[in-house]
């Protein structure tokens, strides 16, 4: 039994669900529900429809790279049945699913956090715009402090060249 993915929204299609369209060049399109089928018939591009997985992945809404993505894949080759392997696989499935869900949750919460970079940018802008609001004494002090800084020569240890020699 193969659980196929919907052409439009990438959800899993379980047996007895959805509809399949075979085009006259023998290409198969599977749809999980009539919603996806109708959207296909309207010639909509899944990359431009916001509720599809293709859109979410393309726009950084979902995880794109994760080690858990390596497990589920189409395997187009015969595999000798091994009872132990099957047992282990069945045990591993819920653990991996759990790990993936947790990572996805983290990804989404990270995404929704205001970026630290953005915060810094905003602060810098504010400083630039409203520097006049500070008392003049402070600014002049800062400027003078900067001026008094003296350049000091520092010896640079050349480690890199030695490393290269070793290689």
């Amino acid at each position: 039994m193969r659980l196929e993915k919907c052409w439009f929204c990438s959800s899993t299609i379980y047996p007895g669900h959805g509809i399949q369209f075979v085009r006259n060049d023998a290409k198969i399109f599977r749809f999980c529900r009539s919603k996806c089928h109708k959207n296909f018939k309207m010639k909509r591009n899944p990359r431009k429809v916001k509720w599809t997985k293709a859109y979410r992945r393309l726009h950084g809404k979902d995880m794109t790279q994760d080690s858990t993505f390596e497990f589920e894949r189409k395997r187009n080759r015969p595999e000798r049945y091994d009872r132990n392997v099957t047992e282990q696989t069945l045990k591993a499935i819920p653990i991996i699913t759990k790990a993936r869900h947790e990572r996805l949750k983290k990804h989404i919460s990270d995404r929704q956090k205001p970026g630290k970079k953005k915060e810094l940018e905003r602060d810098n802008k504010e400083l630039e715009q409203d520097i006049n609001m500070l008392p003049k004494k402070l600014i002049s002090n800062e400027a003078s402090a900067e001026k008094t800084k003296v350049k000091v020569k520092v010896k640079v240890v050349q480690q890199q060249t030695e490393d290269r020699m070793e290689e």
Binding site: K5, F8, T52, K53, K74, N76
Partner: peptide, 20 residues
């Protein structure tokens, strides 16, 4: 390139097909 079934599979969190 237009959307294909492979794109749909990858978006669903599957790896590249393994042909051995």
């Amino acid at each position: 390139a237009p959307h294909t079934q492979l794109d749909a599979d990858l978006a669903a969190g599957m790896g590249m097909p393994d042909n051995g």
